[in-house]
């Protein structure tokens, strides 16, 4: 039996066939394909605020990309360009806190890394161009920013990535304070690009989008840790 990896989902008004702007739980297929290529069984977790019991049947948790986290979760007022979905936050924070407590393997992608940081007491930059003075983490709509990351020697992410340090980013927020996690990767501008929990079996957050290339270095490690 394959390890079961739960993927947190978006809820968006979606359009397909004869259906127009229907409220839909969805996840880009890249995430599903990346998990299945690694030998896992993907299931999609629609937001649910009641409890985290679904973790009982999961072997690993994949926190997907998505909208901004509600700034109240880290004690800030919303900035003008912050767009959040509180109902998704509620479901994901419930899951991630319980998963950390259970030491379930967790991979956080983009927003998912930010959820990990905030759930452990961290904070975010709400709009990176205001902080960094450039737009290289999201150059234009639909265009990924290409970077070379620097990883901390001996870290999980350094081991997984090996010699190929290229990453592609698409985000306008970033981790300011990683909470109880450790920052193990940064871009040339100093922004946190990877976080880990060294006291857990496998808790890794990356600010870039490994699912787009179905990067088996990361998804393989998640499924292996879950197996």
């Amino acid at each position: 039996m394959r390890p079961i990896i739960g993927i947190t989902s978006y809820v968006v008004p979606a359009t397909w066939g004869v259906w127009h702007e229907v409220s839909t739980a969805l996840i880009p297929n890249d995430y599903v394909a990346a998990v299945e290529l690694a030998g896992g069984r993907a299931v999609i977790l629609p937001p649910d605020e009641r409890d985290a019991d679904v973790l009982r049947v999961l072997d690993g948790l994949l926190l997907a990309g998505g909208p901004d986290i509600e700034p109240g979760r880290y004690g800030a007022e919303p900035a003008p360009l912050t767009e959040s979905r509180p109902e998704r936050d509620a479901g994901e924070f419930l899951l991630v806190r319980k998963a950390l407590e259970l030491d379930l393997p967790v991979l956080g992608v983009c927003r998912g890394m930010q959820v990990l940081a905030v759930a452990t007491g961290g904070t975010l930059h709400q709009h990176l161009p205001d902080v960094l003075g450039h737009e290289q983490h999201r150059p234009a709509p639909g265009v990924y920013g290409e970077h070379e990351a620097r990883f901390e020697g001996g870290s999980l992410i350094a081991k997984l990535m090996g010699d190929d340090l290229g990453i592609h980013c698409y985000h306008h927020q970033g981790v300011a304070d990683p909470g109880t996690l450790r920052v193990t990767g940064r871009t040339e501008d100093g922004l946190a690009e990877a976080v880990e929990a060294p006291d857990r079996r496998f808790v890794l957050g990356v600010q870039w989008h490994p699912e787009v290339t179905r990067d088996q270095r990361l998804f393989g490690a998640l499924v292996e840790a879950a197996g």
Binding site: V11, S23, L26, V32, I44
Partner: peptide
């Protein structure tokens, strides 16, 4: 569903289900 779907500025293949079912 595994379906080509449009939302926000995206047009991509997604695993999805209308929230009415959920």
């Amino acid at each position: 569903y595994a379906q080509q779907v449009q939302y926000s500025n995206n047009d991509l293949m997604a695993g999805m289900l209308p929230m009415t079912y959920v």
